[in-house]
């Protein structure tokens, strides 16, 4: 295990049907802080997160703090300390907010209700409300809270948490991610480059199922040509 490396992804390959979605993807996530997983639409960011969890069939190697995850099933991977906030949030709409959180409680893990309610006070007041009747932003809070709740999560895989949210809520989520990064390592997929720039330290950029760039966020964002090449836009 390399010094300071928490998650080590090596030669990850994913086929869905006939298509070779991820091709030999390798990268490392350092312990602590937020690492960005960036790239244009459809390059395989979501599939990478799903591959780490085992939600899609993959080959290659994924280790968390030196432990190989690829032989484990999804619940086993998660119980090793991997929290997941999916792109479409996937809250349980028929369950109340409280029930969504209770379901996420992992037996044996210390729980961080205080942090969760501190970041998202609405979740306390809306505890008895069905999650399906919440706004998109509130559902995102539930999704983030589910991952933050378990204190024994070592890494959080968070997929486009600000997608489709009003600017005010984007600010709230950004702030929550900053706080979350103080207690866990985060691998963040984020299409809002302003948000990504503010939060992220290391970046991995995917390009059509392959790693196109690995480095520091300033290297990428500070070089308009590089940013345009990998992200399709320059970000000032």
């Amino acid at each position: 295990m390399n010094d300071g490396v928490l998650l080590d992804v090596r030669n990850l390959d994913v086929f869905i049907g006939e298509s070779h979605i991820l091709q030999n993807v390798s990268f490392q996530v350092r312990e602590g802080g937020i690492t960005g997983l960036l790239g244009r639409n459809g390059v395989g960011k979501t599939t990478t997160l799903r591959g780490i969890l085992g939600l899609v069939r993959r080959t290659g190697s994924v280790t968390l703090a030196g432990d190989e995850l690829t032989a484990l099933d999804v619940p086993q991977v998660v119980r090793r300390g991997v929290g997941y906030v999916p792109e479409d949030r996937d809250v349980f709409g028929g369950l109340t907010v409280d029930e969504n959180l209770r379901l996420a409680e992992r037996p044996g893990s210390p729980l961080r209700y205080e942090l969760v309610y501190d970041l998202f006070p609405e979740l306390r007041t809306r505890g008895a409300q069905r999650a399906g009747t919440l706004s998109g932003g509130q559902q995102q809070m539930v999704a983030l809270a589910r991952a933050l709740l378990n204190a024994d999560n070592r890494i959080l895989l968070i997929d486009e948490p600000t997608k489709g949210l009003a600017p005010l809520v984007v600010g709230l989520v950004t702030n929550a991610l900053k706080r979350a990064a103080e207690v866990a390592t985060i691998l963040l997929v984020e299409q809002n480059l302003a948000v990504a720039h503010k939060l992220v330290r290391d970046v991995i950029v995917l390009d059509q199922g392959q790693v196109g760039f690995i480095g520091n966020v300033e290297q990428l964002m500070g070089d308009p040509a590089l940013a345009r090449k990998h992200l399709g836009v320059a970000h000032g």
Partner: peptide
């Protein structure tokens, strides 16, 4: 109840 809604997400919460 959660599994009836979304089985994959139940697994992604670490539940067998």
């Amino acid at each position: 109840r959660a599994g009836v809604e979304n089985r994959a997400m139940v697994m992604a919460l670490g539940i067998d």
